[in-house]
Design a protein around this nucleic acid. Structure first.
Lengths: 345, 345
DNA sequence: TGTTAGCACTCAAGGCTTAAGAGTGCTAAC
DNA sequence: GTTAGCACTCTTAAGCCTTGAGTGCTAACA
């Protein structure tokens, strides 16, 4: 469908537009790119490419601009050719920094978002792991006051969460200890999902002697688990969007920043296609969310125990430097997975 | 120095500018405000006011605009006259919402920032309490793995912090328990400041039998305490700045948003004058930080045990609705203090 | 003496026109 | 099939003019 020369012309247009953000015409193209044919011929090819939907004209005499379809072709080709080898040295350097600066997982993801944005010059977004998929490593109930119990939960990824449970009667420390130990034995190694389901059954049958105490605690634990299931959303480099001429328009910039600031929406965005594995690129109109319809979103997942547990990505104009962005995301995907592996050991 | 009529004219200019954001001329002023004199007289008064530094002219034929000095006069007058009675009903409603939606202190401050921004239509910023000033309620060391100990710290405001300590040798659970109990007895009720100072002394003398174990833990605990001393910074409604015509300029908007996004800078800003008590208003050039030099910043403190432990504020154009903002901040100051009181009980 | 009307003057902003420049599409010749 | 040439299109920037809001000064008035 697209012969060799058409591809060449198309790539030249894309290349030029990635750099300049200006529509390009046949004559300029023939001067700047050594295509071996005259501007008139290029003109004809460009006309064909427009008809095929790969190029757009902002107006009659303005030169042409790549369409989403063109970027899609271009990106698919990049991915196919595996041009994108990550720089091992850079990877290791970033891994060092991340490991050094991050003591817990939330911090790790936040730092990753920060560095990713700094490297790519685009806005970065990320979600921290969904607890549902993470395994319990330790649970402990600690008496604080007469009516207050601190519940501490440690996951296998090193995440620690605590909730203060307010109970109606005083529960002696040794009872709490016994209960803690029991819960540990029964629940250790289960995901939070599984805990949610089995909790009721197990407890009521086997811990009859502490029934009264447990009755008052169990709903609180369940509630706490539910509360914990919020994924954290991080964004960094939001104002980088101002660097792109396509966002010189204040309303567009506002829409973009407002969108990124809305953590809930970003969570939905990143949880879409339910953490499907690997690298994902959504170009322009392919995006569901309106403010992203002239952006491209590139995301990568990170894993633990072979299971995808979170996502990190960059957002920029469709005219973005896909190669750099893809490289960076591959790199972070691998690094995060490796560091999480270390954390959980 | 300023006679009655000058004040009247000045206030009319301010009033008009607060609403319209446009420079106002003598004729328009005389038509819209019932000042009882002709535009020519107003013209003379405005000329005087300009000479005195209360009015500025954007250019020769553009009408006049209040200066920072004018706003300062205006604001001082507002504060003096105590015009600003807070709406008890509204206060209680917000208190209800805050109490309902906030389980821990960080969440409380974040929610407060969110609601404050929604009410005032300005960008809000806040810092969570500085741990230094907060008292320890409970500390517990929990064994997790062979080489890992979880340290949980509960403050009197209900803040819970944990750190995983990695130690070199396995420490038996009962030893950890003994140490925990000892630490609790010795440190309970002290502020983190005081703990940092006395820790070394107390421990080494009295816990000789666990010296070896403690030697390996103490530095880790100290480090953790230091790590914890980061105040959290929250901002909300950042994009509200786009609603003001003075920020239609993209570079100004970028500078503003970049500034607000820089949490460290905001922390410095709010920690300035070291949490001096009460309401504070900084107008335009009074601000130290460049991006705020045409903004006004209004902050209020919140307290615990009579001690100021944090700050919340709004940032807007100097042309801001001071009365609403001041009312809102008074209200949040009181509410946060009251809710913290509840939390710590 | 303070107030006011009147008038000349200033300046920004918006509208119009024009010219320049980049580009297209078509045609005819190579 | 490729290319040169040309008429045509459309945006952008510059220049010019007009309009309108506003100022400051002067002279007259109460």
């Amino acid at each position: 469908m697209l012969d060799d020369r058409k591809i060449k012309v198309l790539y030249a247009v894309i290349d030029s537009y990635l750099i300049s953000a200006e529509p390009i015409g046949s004559r300029t193209l023939s001067k700047q790119y050594n295509l071996g044919v005259s501007s008139a011929t290029i003109r004809n090819e460009m006309s064909d490419l427009e008809e095929l939907g790969y190029l757009n004209k902002p107006h009659t005499s303005a030169g042409r601009v790549p369409s989403d379809k063109a970027y899609r072709l271009y990106v698919n080709e990049i991915l196919k050719k595996e041009k994108i080898k990550i720089d091992i040295e850079k990877k290791e350097e970033i891994k060092r920094i991340l490991t050094k600066e991050s003591k817990e997982i939330d911090q790790l993801i936040q730092n990753a978002a920060r560095i990713l944005s700094a490297i790519t010059k685009y806005t970065s977004i990320a979600i921290s792991p969904q607890l549902k998929k993470i395994k319990l490593k330790h649970i402990q109930l600690i008496p604080i006051d007469d009516m207050e119990i601190l519940m501490v939960i440690v996951s296998d990824t090193g995440i620690v969460k605590n909730t203060i449970l307010r109970v109606k009667q005083n529960i002696p420390a040794d009872q709490l200890n016994t209960i803690s130990n029991f819960l540990n034995i029964k629940l250790k190694g289960l995901t939070f999902d599984e805990i949610g389901k089995t909790m009721g059954d197990v407890i009521f049958k086997e811990m009859y002697e502490f029934k009264e105490v447990i009755d008052s605690i169990i709903p609180l634990i369940n509630q706490s688990l539910k509360d914990m299931d919020n994924v954290e959303v991080y964004a960094d480099g939001v104002t980088k969007i101002f660097d792109f001429p396509e966002y010189k328009d204040i309303d567009k910039a506002k829409a973009f920043i407002s969108f990124i600031e809305d953590k809930e929406q970003i969570a939905n965005l990143l949880l879409d296609n339910s953490l499907q594995n690997g690298l994902e690129i959504t170009i322009g109109e392919e995006n569901i969310y309106d403010p992203l319809k002239d952006c491209s979103l590139i995301t990568a997942t990170y894993k633990l125990d072979g299971k995808t547990i979170g996502k990190i990505g960059v957002v920029g104009p469709t005219r973005m430097d896909y190669i750099t962005a893809i490289k960076a995301l591959r790199l972070f995907s691998i690094n995060l997975t490796e560091i999480l592996e270390m954390f959980s050991r």
